[in-house]
Design a protein around this nucleic acid. Structure first.
Length: 107
DNA sequence: AACCTGACTTCGG
DNA sequence: TCCGAAGCCAGGT
């Protein structure tokens, strides 16, 4: 039985609109644990397949892709670009592409 | 129980 | 603006 935090994280990620992104920290905050950004990462690793989560719409604070390795880095970038997300000269995503959600109650 | 780990975040130099 | 260190959380060993 998944923790409530895990269930919320999954629900939030499943609802990220196409062409939008959201930072790990924000997901953690909305799910009720502001400092559990790293936990969001673990959930993505363990539940992406099972729940068909749009993992690539979750990015690091400041709109930067978190992957260090070039391979997955480019994969995520291309998937987002395909949805219309634009990267600036520093490979960061503009704030206008961030999914703005007041609370988890709205979904 | 101790220790390590990660697609993180924040803060200070 | 760019690192590096420190803080943080929960699952795995």
């Amino acid at each position: 039985m998944p923790s409530e935090f895990t269930q919320k994280v999954i629900r939030i990620i499943q609802n990220i609109p196409r062409g939008k992104v959201i930072p790990y920290g924000v997901v953690a905050m909305l799910a009720g644990s502001p400092k559990a950004a790293r936990q969001v990462v673990m959930i993505l690793n363990s539940s992406t397949q099972k729940f068909q989560l749009p993992w690539y719409r979750v990015v690091g604070a400041g709109g930067k892709i978190a992957f260090k390795d070039l391979r997955p880095y480019n994969e995520q970038k291309s998937l987002l670009t395909a949805e219309g997300v634009v990267f600036d000269d520093s490979d960061r995503i503009a704030d206008s592409f961030f999914w703005k959600i007041a609370s988890i109650e709205s979904i």
